[in-house]
Design a protein around this nucleic acid. Structure first.
Lengths: 345, 345
DNA sequence: ATTAGCACTCATTTCGTTTTAGTGCTAACA
DNA sequence: TGTTAGCACTAAAACGAAATGAGTGCTAAT
């Protein structure tokens, strides 16, 4: 059954007030603040209907109504009017993109910080390299008498390096030799194939180079770093602003979940439709722990790193604002990509 | 006036119980749990004395006593018996040092994490490079047709690098030329002297190298990173375990302070005596915000990076355990240093 | 010097009462 | 027929007085 126009208006009013006050909303309040041409009694009738239809809930008799997950859902889906970012907000956002040469990770953490500050919700982001990264080249070069620099460059443009202290001097020629062998062994190999076993297998080819173990350790470490999923969380303390977490134990729980990489990872599973903003309301999300939260998220893809970024807040979050922010952000991100690819390829 | 033995015993008992329960301790309780050969009345008299002397406080008449800052102070200073780490705890600690080749920062963040887990307090650490870092060498090398790698190596062994996309191909010879000019300009310069002005001044010497702006930007960014003070915080949520923060607003406040780089920086000012463990109790610390907290801290120095590491907890923290942990940690850190310098110089 | 005894204090708990904010239903009304 | 006023009803929250309990300090006895 479709919602009548009036019912929708009432639902909207309730959601609006509830988002602001976190208190159940009664018929009189709605009449006063929103729909003064109807009497409370009429509104009450409609509210009873809305409850029956599943859009509202009543914490107990004699309390007002609060929106249900379903209520929020239709509110969000049936074109809520968009919050319009202020100039200041736009400028702030753009600040994060100022240094476009920066690494994707540092852009994302800046964005998260700005997002959480502007919305007062918690910003979370995952970031993972594209999976099939390959070793483009390895290099060993002498720095001074006792130190060499080991470098690993990947085909996505990533560079890792580490200083290694040597027992005996290694000159440019020797370094070039080692570099050549390293490349003949490993160039083109997928990063995830760099395993201790593989390396051990190759080690016979480096007889006479005492520091090969150190180089191998460096390669393993770098490979691990490249493969590693990174997770950024910013503004989790904001959760303590909401009366739903005025109980310390609840607060502690949610903060623990929100700082736990595993659950965040589950929470930020890729959206159904790539490249669209997804809104996950209360129990819709995959984790019991977050049943009282809503998440606004979208995927991004930025110079070899991709992942999802999201805003986590209480169920009664300001969807309009949060979604608008995300949209703006998404746009800016897309701009960077296109600029970059213009240059790059 | 010196404390009689009996008074000291009573003070200890009160502190012991208060650390456990966070509740004011009464005379009966002490009699039951600690000093059964004295009657509550006698203990009461002694307690009254101790209060007069400033070692105890009474939240209100008809409540038991709680230790004052001064009380904790004598408790800590007059040789509290040491907590002895379990084998398991020692092993856990050592885990953090397993990969000694790691960068100082990552060792410190691992340590912080372990410390906070084992103590249930909050671990914080600052980390700063020795101040007079110099540029040892700069390097530009071609990676493929359209990309060059810019590198900056500092005299403490740090390496920064970044890929730069070029408009036209730059071969090895050209790269070597640029490298030579770069080094003649900047090698030996203190990192903090790398400023936009300085760079602008030099830029005439790079006529014909279109990407010099990118290289300069990279140098500025790297210099900033090197100079930047890093701060690590781990386990701040642990604060929510303590009844002193069962009020969300208090909890929020302390969490904000504890995650605020500026205040942390003040809090972790270098200890009076380098290389010793310092205990800062309640109001002794420089920041009003942390008047209800105590801090166990010590300085460290690890491969070019140095700073302080500390444990922050409520005033009634388990000093014995926290100090022991710190001591053990300090030892392990010192070991690494001596091992490393054995190799290095 | 120690301690039993007792009067006293003050925070906390308990419990019944009132207040308040809301509902649902019925009957009257336009 | 949809709207509304009126009213009985409900449940939580706020209130306030009384009881409870954990502790003290002081005095007098040991």
């Amino acid at each position: 059954m479709q919602l009548s126009d009036r019912k929708r208006k009432i639902l909207q009013a309730i959601i609006h007030d509830y988002i602001e006050t976190a208190e159940p909303v009664g018929s009189r309040t709605i009449c006063k603040n929103h729909i003064s041409d109807l009497s409370p009694a009429t509104i009450r009738n409609e509210m009873a209907d809305l409850e029956e239809m599943g859009y509202l809930e009543q914490p107990h008799t004699s309390a007002g109504r609060i929106p249900s997950d379903l209520g929020y859902r239709v509110f969000v889906d049936s074109g809520l009017e968009r919050y319009r970012l202020t100039i200041k907000e736009m400028l702030q956002m753009q600040e994060a993109f100022k240094h476009k040469m920066r690494e994707a990770n540092s852009i994302m953490s800046e964005i998260s910080s700005i997002l959480s500050q502007m919305t007062n919700y918690t910003a979370v982001a995952t970031s993972k390299r594209a999976s099939n990264i390959k070793v483009q080249s390895l290099q060993v070069m002498p720095i001074d008498a006792r130190r060499i620099l080991a470098m690993m460059i990947t085909n996505d443009g990533g560079v890792k390096n580490q200083l290694i202290v040597t027992r005996q001097e290694i000159d440019g020629v020797r370094a070039a030799e080692i570099t050549a062998v390293l490349n003949s062994c490993f160039a083109g190999m997928t990063v995830s194939d760099i395993t201790p076993e593989k390396l051990a297998e190759m080690s016979t080819r480096f007889r006479g180079f005492a520091e090969i173990e150190d180089v191998f350790e460096f390669m393993l470490k770098s490979a691990a770093e490249i493969e590693k999923q990174e997770i950024i969380v910013d503004g989790s303390i904001n959760m303590l602003n909401f009366p739903e977490y005025s109980d310390v134990n609840k607060a502690k729980q949610i903060l623990e979940y929100i700082n736990d990489k595993k659950s965040l990872n589950m929470l930020l599973q890729s959206p159904k439709r790539e490249n669209e903003i997804e809104v996950i309301i209360g129990n819709e999300n995959p984790l019991e722990e977050f049943k009282d939260c809503s998440i606004i998220m979208c995927s991004y893809n930025l110079g070899g790193r991709s992942g999802n970024i999201g805003l986590v807040g209480p169920r009664r979050m300001n969807y309009s604002k949060a979604i608008s922010m995300m949209e703006y952000l998404k746009n800016e991100l897309d701009n960077i990509i296109s600029e970059r690819t213009d240059e790059d390829e």
